[in-house]
Each structure stands twice: as C-alpha cells, then as structure tokens.
Design a protein around this nucleic acid. Sequence first.
DNA 1: TATTGACTTACACCTAACTCTAAGGTCTAA
DNA 2: TTAGACCTTAGAGTTAGGTGTAAGTCAATA
Lengths: 128, 128
Amino acid sequence: MGYSIKTIAQKSGLSQYTLRYYEREGVLPVVARDEHGNRCFHDEDLELISLICCLKDTGMPIAEIKQFIALSREGVEALPDQRKLLQAHKLQIDEKIKFFQSFAQKIEHKIAYFASLERAAQEQAARK
Amino acid sequence: MGYSIKTIAQKSGLSQYTLRYYEREGVLPVVARDEHGNRCFHDEDLELISLICCLKDTGMPIAEIKQFIALSREGVEALPDQRKLLQAHKLQIDEKIKFFQSFAQKIEHKIAYFASLERAAQEQAARK
DNA sequence: TATTGACTTACACCTAACTCTAAGGTCTAA
DNA sequence: TTAGACCTTAGAGTTAGGTGTAAGTCAATA
C-alpha cells in the first residue's frame, strides 16, 4: 500500500526529479520508505503536495515553502505561525490578482489600438 | 533632451543592468545614442518599456517579448501578428487570474482549518 | 538465469533572467 | 587638474529551480 514515486509524479504533475529534489531540499517532509527503501507516498502526502503546488504556482518561493514545512514538524505549537504565513501569502495573491486585472486591461487597450492602426492602414491602401 | 539610463531606471523600476541587458538581447529595440555614445531614451521608449514590464510581470518569457519587439521593426505589415500575440497572452492572463482565484480560495480554506485546529488545541489545554 | 524496468543515492549539469566587474571615456565642479 | 559622477562595452558570475547521469539494488518475467 502507498503510492510509488511514479504514481505521485503522474497525480501531482511534478516530475520524479522534482519530487526527489523537493524532499532533499525540505520542500516536502521526508517520505516513508517501504522494505526495499523505495518511497512510499500516502494520501496525506498527496494532499500536502497539492498545497505545495498551490503555493508554488501562486509565486511562493521554495525557500518559504520550506519554512512552512519545517513548522509542520513542530506540531500544535507552530499552528499560528503556519496560519500567519498562509494569511500573508493570501494577501499577496490578492494583490497579484489586482495587478493582473489591471495589466489585462492595459493589454486590451493596446490590442484595440493595434486594431485601429490596422484599419487605418487598410483604408490608406484602399484609397490608392 | 532625452532621458539618461539612470532616469529611465528610476522611472521604470528596472536596473540599469537590466535595461542594457534587454537592449543587448533585443527585448528592447536599440536605443538612440547622443553625441557621446550615451543612451538617450525618449517618451516612446518609456512607454514601450512600460508595456514590456507589463508583459514580463504577467509571465511572458523574455524570448516571447523579443519576438514581439522584432515584429515592431517590420512596421504595418506585422500589426496583425503583434495583435494576435497580445491577444493570446491576454487569454493566458485571464486563465491565470482564474487559477489564482481558485488557489486563493483553497488557501483560505486551509487557513480556516488551521484556525479550527488552534481552537481545538486551546480547548484541550483549558480542560486540564 | 539473464535481462528488463522501476527504484535508490550522489552529484553534475542546465536555463532563464539577471547582476556585477573590469577597463575605459567624458563631463563638471572645486 | 584632479576628484567624482556619470556613462560605455565585453564578458564573467550568480540565483532559483529544476533536470540529467552514473552506479547500484531489487523483483518480476522470457
């Protein structure tokens, strides 16, 4: 029982290389091994990986994810610190969403501007 | 007349190193020089830099920005290609916004979960 | 029983995007 | 007329985040 690294790579979308790298670096807690020394992932691991991907994909650097995971090892004591870390990151995501929305608008304006230039060029060509 | 690289660095938030690097790499069109060979930026440059930052900050890799800038040199002919490039990127930004929003929610749930664990731990402690 | 395939570790290598250094030119103010 | 601030280029170095290789173990299969 437990999933192989291959399975987890498929389920998580991370490569086997990346999974090993994350474990080495402490981005993932050390994964259990079976009787052959092979990694043996469980559902909790999978869930944690999903959270880690979520943090990573929203721009949290690996060093910070590492901190978060390190806090996990300290148990109940560290819960407030973990929560604060997540809250701070949540604010950053919200900021990013706002930036992205304004950038999207800016690019949209640019697109409209290009379209108007194209029309002008066509009319210019037609007039000849 | 025209702005020095220092001024542009301040106005754009990019370092002088980065501005030179961008020009070398073709991320910026070659900038005009004054009689001493010093870069002499104009308002159009500043505006283009602002667009470039916008593309970069929304995740467009430099190689793609380079393509966009290369199209600029082809004049009116290339307008539709430039517009399509922007439109494709706009879609990606919209996708990203959706991802970020769902991630933000996920993290929010996690925060609530951590808060509930904290309350449970406090009650546990009080009961002793 | 030999080979195939999945896994292990340790360590080297890669890419993107900067960032800095060296060596030098020019201008300005004291 | 020299010190300091600014600029130039060419090229080396750095950082983050992987990605790949080498050498070996183990278990199932032809």
